[in-house]
Design a protein around this nucleic acid. Sequence first.
DNA 1: CGGAATCCGCCACGATACTG
DNA 2: CAGTATCGTGGCGGATTCCG
Lengths: 170, 170
Amino acid sequence: MTMEDGTSKSPGYCGDTDGDYDVLQWDTREDCEVRQILDRIADKWSLLVIALLDQRSLRFSELRRRIEGISQRMLTRTLRQLERDGLVSRTVYPAVPPRVDYELTPLGVTLHHTIRALVTWTEEHQNEIAFARAAYDARVTAEQEAAERDSAERDAIAREVLAAGRANTG
Amino acid sequence: MTMEDGTSKSPGYCGDTDGDYDVLQWDTREDCEVRQILDRIADKWSLLVIALLDQRSLRFSELRRRIEGISQRMLTRTLRQLERDGLVSRTVYPAVPPRVDYELTPLGVTLHHTIRALVTWTEEHQNEIAFARAAYDARVTAEQEAAERDSAERDAIAREVLAAGRANTG
DNA sequence: CGGAATCCGCCACGATACTG
DNA sequence: CAGTATCGTGGCGGATTCCG
């Protein structure tokens, strides 16, 4: 089964973090649950799959069509990961043609609620972020142009000095 | 300035998503804010930086020491990204030696609160996830071993049949 | 001290082909 | 229809070097 990723060893109990939690304990490079979960839901497709399954259970081909752009490989992998984490359940109907349904588990539903909070935050602040980016980019390009002007000016002065020097010694 | 990533064009208004939101509008491949923010906070270091800055403002070298494992390149890049998005502010003290302080903006603080919800969810459900993984892995290896046993059995039968055939024709 | 620029290894992901 | 197997590649991130 090749096990392309590596999460089999060391459950990595991060210790309890009541109240004044120790940041380094839940996100350092040691494999902590937080990072794994975050990486899972934040990868290219998981979030979308979870969101789609929130409405109702879907079969493989339905997910494939709705997402449009995902390869069958990545859809399979994404669903396997979510299934392994207990966020999505997979039911196979032994029939011809084969049919496989996916749906959110209760745990997956609670995660989706939490995710929604993040999505909501983004929706509420996306204009602030866009504004900040525009301001930042403008500032950077302005400084850049100013630096170029200064450089050109120094070049001009240097050339003048050189010319004056040649006039004196020549 | 090379601009290694590309978020300069098309702000990508995802449309309002009141109530029954359209999932495909906030996470499809078109560059929507949600994905960008999620990718930002979920990348290898941003979340940790945000968490550390939540306590108090820190200078570059302090962050570098506390994180331990991050390269100066990635720390710089991470901070620049966060600064560009208006989540972190950067203040330079013109002195010798140079000193640069980073701190969360009000916007960054609100994001940190939202993130905390996700972290809390993970902390509350990490044992369920660990259990689900263990169960899944156990099931997979069990099926695998069963398949191997079946294969060996079929091999044995096939050999017997072959031997019988030779006995008849020989 | 706080970067910027450069080179490079690795692997996550996509495209393709095959199976039950 | 719902996958698995294989190969090629772009880009992320680390190591190193140089600058103000």
